[in-house]
């Protein structure tokens, strides 16, 4: 840690030491352990027993695993675009003025997961919940759809759309970064609002959007856990059993840590593939723009 003009900057890397050590211990080591455990039978009570690729073969035949994987992908496919679209719309709408409105948009995001889940459990109560009562007041008598698989999935998507504060703030900042001159120019040339959006706003914000989408895919694997545990308990009929919930059940309820580790790795690989695909699309899109 000797200070010195040219090498001084590089010495700053030492500041990252606690972060790197903690990350290695809390994420790196567990991830590697999971890879190892995936090939063993392990119940945390007795020593792990090597079983080769048995768990992966079993995953192949486990209908609930495929259901959970499908549910997770479906959720990401529904929630991520919707969240981004709503957040983008709000950011464009509120990028000048209206701090009160911005606070209102951000507020649901600060509600702790468990309180938020309970709140929605109440909102969605099929007979006495405020939503059902409001629908009844405007003449919609049948609120039983909330108990159908698609109703439950839709409800979970809806409740994550309300918690888009982080995405919203990043998009807000990104929009502020855009040079106002471009907009003025576009207006002078007589471009309508739609043209401005498609010719100026969208292309310039696309990289941010793509990065947020990649991040949101990862986040969607976490945000589903508490609502699925508290609101739907994975039902009706496994319609909201997402991968994290199924991993939790296998690992912590039935102590099949090896099997759950195998699932964890499949989940990680699927996430990585989805993120990579998105970044690849972004790169292709950029290249085509530059060409």
């Amino acid at each position: 840690m000797k200070p010195g003009a040219p090498r001084g900057r590089e010495a700053m890397v030492w500041l990252a030491a606690p972060f790197l050590v903690a990350a290695a211990l809390l994420v790196g080591l567990p991830a590697l352990l999971a890879l190892g455990l995936a090939f063993t039978e392990y119940d945390a009570l007795s020593a792990p027993r090597f079983v080769g690729v048995d768990h992966f073969l079993r995953l192949w035949d486990d209908p609930l695993f495929w259901t959970a994987l499908g549910n997770s992908l479906l959720f990401a496919a529904m929630a991520v675009p919707l969240r981004l679209a709503v957040a983008l719309g709000l950011a464009l709408l509120l990028h000048r003025g209206g701090r009160l409105a911005r606070s209102a948009v951000f507020l649901p995001t600060v509600v702790p997961d468990i309180a938020y889940a309970l709140l929605w459990l109440w909102l969605l109560n099929p007979l006495y919940g405020p939503l059902a009562l409001a629908l009844k007041a405007v003449g919609v008598a049948d609120t039983g759809w909330l108990l159908t698989p698609w109703g439950a999935r839709g409800a979970l998507v809806a409740l994550t759309v309300f918690q888009l504060g982080e995405v919203f703030v990043v998009l807000l900042a990104a929009r502020r970064e855009l040079p106002e001159e471009l907009y003025e120019l576009c207006e002078l040339e007589g471009g309508g609002a739609l043209t401005v959006f498609s010719k100026v706003t969208l292309p310039l914000m696309a990289p941010t959007l793509a990065l947020l989408a990649a991040r949101d895919v990862v986040v969607s694997l976490q945000t589903t856990f508490v609502p699925a545990l508290v609101i739907t308990q994975g039902g009706p009929r496994y319609a909201t059993t997402f991968l994290p919930l199924y991993i939790y059940q296998n690992g912590f309820e039935y102590l099949r840590l090896g099997y759950a580790s195998a699932m964890t790795w499949v989940m990680f690989l699927v996430t990585a593939a989805m993120v990579a695909a998105q970044l690849w699309v972004l790169r292709g899109w950029r290249a085509s723009k530059e060409a």
Binding site: N125, P126, L127, Y128, G129, T143, G144, L147
Partner: peptide, 8 residues
Amino acid sequence: SLEEAKSE
């Protein structure tokens, strides 16, 4: 019914 059972 299912609806009633889930509401209360």
